[in-house]
Design a protein around this nucleic acid. Structure first.
Lengths: 152, 152
DNA sequence: TCAATTAGTAGACAATATCAACCATAATTT
DNA sequence: AAATTATGGTTGATATTGTCTACTAATTGA
C-alpha cells in the first residue's frame, strides 16, 4: 500500500468545508421544518442581535466578517418583517441600535429550539470534554486567521 | 458577574460558521494573490478531480453534498477554460470521467501553494496531535450530520 | 419489454458575497 | 470656525453559490 493514499488523507480543509456546509444544510432544514419564514442570514442576525442587545450594524459586520452592505440589507428585511427595532444611537446620530422586539423574541425562541435539535444531532456520542477541546482548538485557528487578515 | 454572560459563551455554531467563513475568505485572498482566475467552486472542483482522478460529476455531488446541477455548471466552466477533460465512461455511456489536463495540473500546483500558506497560518502553534484530534472529532460530527440527513 | 432509476443538462430563481459610490454625522487638523 | 478626514449606514450593480423542477438519454430490474 505504501504512500499511494497520501492524496486521500483527510484534510483539515475538507473537514472545515464539509462541516460548515452540512451544518448549514441541517440548520436550514430544521428552520424550515419549524415553518419559520427565514433564510440563513436572517437567523444569523437575529442570533447576533439577541446575544448583543443594542449592537450596531457595524459591530455585527465586524464580528461576523461580513460586508456592511449585506448587513444593512438583512437588517432592513428583519425590520420590514417587524422582528427588530432600530433606534438612533443618542451618542452618535449616524449609528442605530438594534434589538429584538416581542415578535422577534418569540421567533428567536423557536429558532433556538430548531437549532438545539441540530446541535443535539451534531454532538451525539461526543462527550463534553471532546466538545470543549474541539471548540478550543477551533478558536485558536480562528485567532490565527483573524490576526493574519488584520495585517493583510 | 454571576451568570449574566451565559449568552456569550462560545458556541459550537459560532466556531463552525466563523471558521468556515474565515477560511474561505483567506483561501480566496490567497488564490487571488496568486493571480489565479478562479472562484471558490472552481478551486474546490479542481481539487476533487485532482484527488479522485476519473471521477464523475455524480460522485463529486455525492461527496460534497452539492446539487448536481451546480456541479454540471462548474465542470462546464472548467472545461471551457481548458483545465479539465471529459471522457465518456466506457462502462456507462451516461457518465463522464473527469480529469485534469496538463494546464489544469499546472494550475493545481499553484493552488496548492496558495492553500498551503493558508493552512500554515491556520495551524500555526497547533501541534500535530491537536490537529488530529480536531479532525477526528470533526469527522465524527460530520458522520452524525450525514447519517441524520440520510434518514431525512 | 416495460417501468423505474440514474447521470447529466438546462432554466429559473433564491440566497449570499463583493465592490464602489454616496450621504450624513463625527472627529481631527489647521 | 473652516476645511479635511474618517466613520456608520445606504444603495446599486454584479458575481458567486445554492436549490428546485423538468427534461433527455442510458441503464437496470422485474
Amino acid at each position: 500500500m505504501l504512500s499511494i493514499n497520501m492524496k486521500n488523507e483527510t484534510d483539515i480543509r475538507q473537514v472545515l468545508w464539509q462541516l460548515a456546509f452540512q451544518f448549514k444544510v441541517s440548520t436550514k432544514r430544521a428552520v424550515r421544518d419549524y415553518d419559520l419564514p427565514l433564510n440563513g442570514m436572517h437567523v444569523r442576525l437575529l442570533q447576533m442581535i439577541d446575544r448583543h442587545p443594542d449592537c450596531t450594524a457595524q459591530q455585527i459586520a465586524g464580528v461576523t466578517g461580513r460586508d456592511k452592505a449585506q448587513i444593512t440589507r438583512v437588517v432592513k428585511e428583519l425590520e420590514s418583517m417587524a422582528l427588530i427595532t432600530r433606534t438612533p444611537d443618542p451618542e452618535d446620530r449616524r449609528a442605530q441600535l438594534l434589538s429584538l422586539n416581542e415578535k422577534g423574541q418569540g421567533l428567536m425562541a423557536r429558532i433556538t429550539d430548531a437549532e438545539d435539535e441540530v446541535k443535539k444531532t451534531l454532538l451525539k456520542g461526543i462527550n463534553k470534554k471532546d466538545q470543549n477541546t474541539f471548540i478550543e482548538i477551533g478558536n485558536r485557528m480562528l485567532d490565527n486567521l483573524r490576526i493574519s487578515s488584520r495585517s493583510d
